[in-house]
Design a protein around this nucleic acid. Sequence first.
DNA 1: CGCGCAATTGCAATCGTTTGCAATTTTGCT
DNA 2: AGCAAAATTGCAAACGATTGCAATTGCGCG
Lengths: 345, 345
Amino acid sequence: MADTDSKDRAGRVTKVRTLADLAKIAGVSPGTVSRALAGNSLVNTKTREKIEAIAREHGFRPNQMASKLRRQKTGVIGIAIPLGHDVRQKISDAFFMTLLGHLAAELTEKGYDLMLRRVIPAQDEDWLDRFIGSGMVDGVIVIGQSDQFERIEEVADGYLPMVVWGNHQEGQRHCVVGTNNRLGGKLAAERLIASGVKEIAFLGDTQAIEFAARFAGAKEVAEKMGVRIRVLPTHLSPERTGEEIAEHLREIEGKVDGIFAATDTIAVTCLKEIRERGIDVPRQLKVVGFDDLPISSQTAPPLTTVRQDIAAGAKGLVDLLLRRLAGDDTESLVLPPHLIIRETA
Amino acid sequence: MADTDSKDRAGRVTKVRTLADLAKIAGVSPGTVSRALAGNSLVNTKTREKIEAIAREHGFRPNQMASKLRRQKTGVIGIAIPLGHDVRQKISDAFFMTLLGHLAAELTEKGYDLMLRRVIPAQDEDWLDRFIGSGMVDGVIVIGQSDQFERIEEVADGYLPMVVWGNHQEGQRHCVVGTNNRLGGKLAAERLIASGVKEIAFLGDTQAIEFAARFAGAKEVAEKMGVRIRVLPTHLSPERTGEEIAEHLREIEGKVDGIFAATDTIAVTCLKEIRERGIDVPRQLKVVGFDDLPISSQTAPPLTTVRQDIAAGAKGLVDLLLRRLAGDDTESLVLPPHLIIRETA
DNA sequence: CGCGCAATTGCAATCGTTTGCAATTTTGCT
DNA sequence: AGCAAAATTGCAAACGATTGCAATTGCGCG
């Protein structure tokens, strides 16, 4: 508030490391200091102010480890990012990162810290139990089910404070927040077909459960409308994707007139490859993406895509987790996707 | 090793929460259990195996809080992201997120966890002391100096295990890892001028120290070569940037023939606005960015930019921090930028 | 069989805070 | 002034794992 260098300008000679040290200086007991610094307790205002002053003067902060140990809660939420095979990719994936950014904002606002952990399930069987059982976090948010659906289910049976970002399956036991991927897939296919597309290619890896759902939705619509649709497996590693897509394009050229990309990242790369082949979008080939990342409005031409509301997703994850921390057994939250029409379809 | 359901198949009825519980079952003392689980200690192989078996059977994990308290180290590295004014923006900024992704990979590999904390210095005077003094982290990496240069300097005087991503100033006291921004700025300007540019506009906020250095480098070259250069303040919040840039473009149209964007994010938005105004890149207007984000090769036309080696930066941050944890007082690390020539200049 | 040394194990203090309970001081009221 | 009730404060036991030191056990060998 006022001046900082008032009396103790000799620096940090006096080292006050513990409540007890501080208590000695203040002439009270450690318990009182603890209560005083905790703020709202039942300690005399005058005493509190004196203690606070001394604490400030010495730059004292109570040791969090001790505090957490004693109180049996950490104020930390664990964020686990399971990396399936694409080991180096996913954590720098634009979608996950954006989600993480929003999570950080939400959790910080609620007074929680985030502990981030990249896990490689293939190398570490019980990554989830380890994270949970370590006593380092009060709850866990798992970003992406990867290929760990079963393991997550098992853990969910005995551990309440966990929420997962991902796809919702009929009858699953773990609490998930995510977009209705199937519906999103339908929207994409409908748009392509409404734009006159006669044959669709889906670019994505249908082993990932979300992508499979997106494809399933598109397929349903396509079949109903008598439009052919095929899958062209496409991965997400920044290096390989470009080539993979180029190859696909060579293969489908002239046969397919609509592309549904499992991800905006794929769509963006795809647009670039298409441009290089001199194909006109949307005249000759129409493209719809999925996610609506910030970049997607910046492409040439701007990408038509299915929007996932990432901010709402983050808020949902945090809200549900907090309710679970309070003992509620919450339902999953499935968010509606929105078709964003720009210029590629 | 062998079968898991050998004797205690009654499930999780017996709850083993502490070393002591486990010790009782194993018929040894808690100390022995601790040593056994720690692995390398001086406990009899047979005993160890027995204890490990019981631990596995009951899914027991030693409480980390207690462990950390006792050992006075946490195995956690704090990552602080100071947000200047653009409160919601920076943490989802592509550059920071990419860096964070690489940091996560590096730190995980070295056996550390990451604790992520968004801080808003304006709302929280002593964010850094709080983070450090909390006893929750063994060391801190600060991502971006924001407008907190002075505060970081102060803290660095009394706290060794801290490394900062940012710009290096002559004679600064804190250990920093970052790109040589001034040199990067020179490279950008040289390229623009070599492409025939006669007047340059720098798009960026020179209040940010890194950006100021980039501009300074460009300015030096421009002045030497007799080319005019001006600053057009541009922020990074996703919403405002587009409009700001549009306005700038209106203002400079016809006068300026080269743009140096402080950031690829700005450059990408810029390219889009330019396209919408029907200006030809690179014929009428040349553009150089900074960062070389993954998207930058995907724009139309692909962006010429100054590359920061993010992976090397992350590795540098982690290496230096680990050496500081070991007691070394390390020097700063300044990485060379690389001009990546694509099609916009 | 007994001694000495090495290999294991147990004991108990410690890390620094929090908090129920009891002790003490204040306050309010007659 | 006297006494009950309320407001503060102190005491000491947790929280759960680690680790120096001492005690025990086991082993080799004369």
